[in-house]
């Protein structure tokens, strides 16, 4: 396989805080690679370093075959959508797109085929000022602007943050289709549930990568049993569940509580009988497969120590 991004030991600190602490990973050609972690994990800093907008304190990376100090070569090969990117609100949709095409030394006509699928939806509004577009539309236009010069590697920094679930789903569907055209895409997000959309993900927290693997592998590797529990009185259940012996952690997940237990100690019957004892009704207790969020929290707690 062809590596498009190889990062080795990238470290960056601002004053006393470590934004990135010895980060290494590789991204292959045509991969949709996700960086998943909360605000302040170091995702934006990492993207800025890889697009040469910011210098790392130490470490290096090869982006499409070029070292980070080869700024000009990298800049013409990557597409980058910064986190707070919001286009020029006083320019029209078309003017925004044409501007970015010109700045990158190309024309909209030349690379229209790349953005066609996304841009057709914007075309009816092409004379509207970008400031007057809805959130989802802005996102699509921003993506078009980042794609118009036919980049080989695309960096999208939190494209879905603050976007409602519907637009998020649409956005990820678009990325899936872009990936099929052979484009390598690195995307960051604070939403754990988006991990499943990626080929591989890096879980990142406080400047450190906790784990890198395909999402399915990460969840398979989860060392504990996850038992989902619900009853008619969830408020009471939250307190009663603390009485379960050998529970490693208890967290709410939607309508269920997730209890993690060491595999050798885990027992559904034990929990069921406890709930009965406490007077819970309509209970549901089941062994489930861990999700990315279970894994992330487990790794977070593990890394603390």
């Amino acid at each position: 396989m062809n590596e498009r991004v190889i990062a080795t030991n990238i470290t960056k600190s601002f004053r006393s805080t470590n934004a990135l602490d010895d980060v290494s990973f590789t991204v292959n050609e045509g991969e949709l690679f996700g960086f998943i972690g909360p605000d302040g994990a170091g995702k934006s800093t990492l993207f800025r370093i890889l697009t040469t907008v910011m210098n790392a304190d130490s470490g290096d990376a090869l982006v499409d075959g070029f070292h980070l100090k080869d700024e000009i070569a990298i800049r013409s090969r990557v597409g980058y959508m910064p986190g707070k990117f919001s286009l020029y609100p006083d320019l029209s949709v078309q003017e925004n797109l044409e501007f970015f095409a010109k700045v990158f030394g190309t024309t909209v006509q030349e690379n229209y085929s790349i953005i066609k699928e996304i841009y057709v939806q914007l075309e009816p509004f092409k004379d509207r000022r970008a400031g007057k577009l809805s959130g989802g539309m802005k996102q699509k236009l921003a993506l078009c602007c980042a794609l118009i010069h036919k980049p080989r590697v695309l960096f999208l920094d939190e494209p879905t943050t603050g976007v409602d679930p519907v637009s998020r789903v649409e956005f990820w569907e678009m990325l899936g289709r872009l990936k099929q055209s052979g484009l390598t895409i690195l995307v960051s997000t604070p939403y754990m549930d988006e991990a499943s959309r990626c080929d591989r993900v890096a879980l990142i927290q406080k400047g450190k990568i906790l784990d890198i693997d395909p999402p399915g592998v990460i969840t398979k590797k989860f060392p504990l049993d996850v038992i989902a529990v619900k009853s008619d009185n969830m408020q009471k259940l939250r307190k009663d569940i603390l009485k379960v012996e050998d529970a490693e952690s208890v967290y709410g997940f939607g309508e269920f509580l997730h209890i993690t237990m060491k595999k050798e100690n885990s027992s559904i019957e034990k929990i069921e009988s406890l709930l009965k004892q406490q007077g819970h009704q309509h209970t549901e207790v089941k062994l489930i497969e861990a999700g990315i969020e279970d894994c992330f929290m487990h790794l977070m707690e593990h890394n603390k120590n």
């Binding site: 409602d164 604070p190 927290q205 967290y251 969020e293």
Partner: peptide, 30 residues
């Protein structure tokens, strides 16, 4: 929004505490 999953849950514990004391909680989320 943008908060790590553990903090997010701790925050909801606070919401429950408030509700238990009789405060009504009106919340939006993505």
């Amino acid at each position: 929004s943008g908060v790590d999953p553990i903090t997010r849950r701790q925050f909801w514990d606070l919401i429950y505490n408030a509700a238990e004391k009789g405060t009504t909680v009106f919340v939006t989320t993505h």
